[in-house]
Design a binder for these strands. Structure first.
Lengths: 189, 189
DNA sequence: TAGACGATATACCGCTTGGTATACTGGCAA
DNA sequence: TTGCCAGTATACCAAGCGGTATATCGTCTA
């Protein structure tokens, strides 16, 4: 593994474990056993390092959500696919998803929030579009796409968090089905 | 308002808006127009200030949840009371609840998390006890109290967050009833 | 073989951080 | 009226912060 990748790895681990503000550049380079100019050579600044980290890691998530959220006539099925996509990603990249989650709830004026906001916004737009496209089939969800998108994300993140505490298994198909059923029940009722 | 209270007020506002790490002691005392030794006279340290803040503000929330979560034979009614309690508190203390929310998702090893964890744990135990007490009436929720408590909190916090974005009105009784109904549906199904 | 270049190190910068030693003030008690 | 004490200010500290000027090394190219 080359130096650049090692720095990104160490930064992810440290940011996820202690938070962006609490981790100094010095700490990161010590963890990789290089010196500061090396880090600044690759990333230009602490913020640049963080932006690179977020963009590279979230690319595959965004792509997967983009495909899963394509409405093709069955909203329940589509929602199920989206849920599965998030659960899969969080299972494969727990450190990154945990970090994303903590920053999604962080004060909007913090430096790192601006970086993460783009990623979150794009996901939100995909989910909203999914619900909007389903409107023709389900008249009662008109103009509620935004709220539905937010609450679906809320539910997904809640259960990802619970699973990180070891309290639930996201790979349990029956469990996932019950979640989606419950969510759809909330929409249609 | 005395100096002590002014410091606590300013600290809450600043921590909620920018995060614990991002706000220096100097910034706080400048906002109140006093000097550092004054702050250290009252609170001993930055962490001491934060602990005092969290403890004083969360006392009323804990008391309200303690009363609301008392199971008296009707679990749906009790859950409804709990939901209303949280919504009321978040409506009355939006700054504090927003701060609490951001820290609840923060990295566990961050300094402030330890302070906030006590408050969260106590709430969780109250909710868990509520579901445990309801077991005799609803055999199918046995040994799931922990998961139920976590997912109820997740749902509550999700909607508080959505309301903070202006996307939903927590004071709408019909809306609250639909939420509780949806949650209970997820439990009983 | 000369030079350019990517990658890395040493040593430093100004600034901010959380925290404190010391001194002063006003009010209240003996 | 003396003395104590809570409360507040001036001025300071060591340590850490993000960031950089400069130099060196090895490799690849002309």
């Amino acid at each position: 593994m080359d130096t650049r990748a090692k720095i990104l790895n160490a930064a992810l681990r440290l940011f996820a474990d202690h938070g962006y503000d609490a981790v100094g550049v010095q700490t990161i380079v010590e963890a990789v056993e290089v010196t500061k100019p090396t880090l600044y050579h690759y990333f230009g600044s602490k913020r640049g390092l963080f932006e690179t980290l977020v963009r590279e890691q979230s690319a595959s998530l965004l792509q997967a959500v983009r495909e899963a959220a394509l409405y093709q006539g069955d909203i329940t099925l589509t929602v199920h696919r989206v849920v599965q996509t998030y659960f899969d990603f969080a299972g494969k990249h727990p450190l990154f998803y945990r970090m994303l989650l903590s920053m999604w709830f962080a004060p909007p004026s913090s430096e790192y929030f601006a970086v993460v906001q783009d990623v979150l916004l794009e996901q939100h737009q995909l989910l909203e579009a999914m619900f909007r496209d389903a409107v023709s089939n389900h008249g009662n969800m008109r103009d509620r796409q935004q709220q539905y998108a937010l609450s679906l994300r809320g539910m997904i993140d809640t259960y990802i968090r619970i699973s990180m505490l070891g309290m639930v298994d996201l790979n349990d198909t029956a469990f996932r089905q019950r979640l989606v059923h419950q969510f759809m029940h909330g929409i249609f009722s």
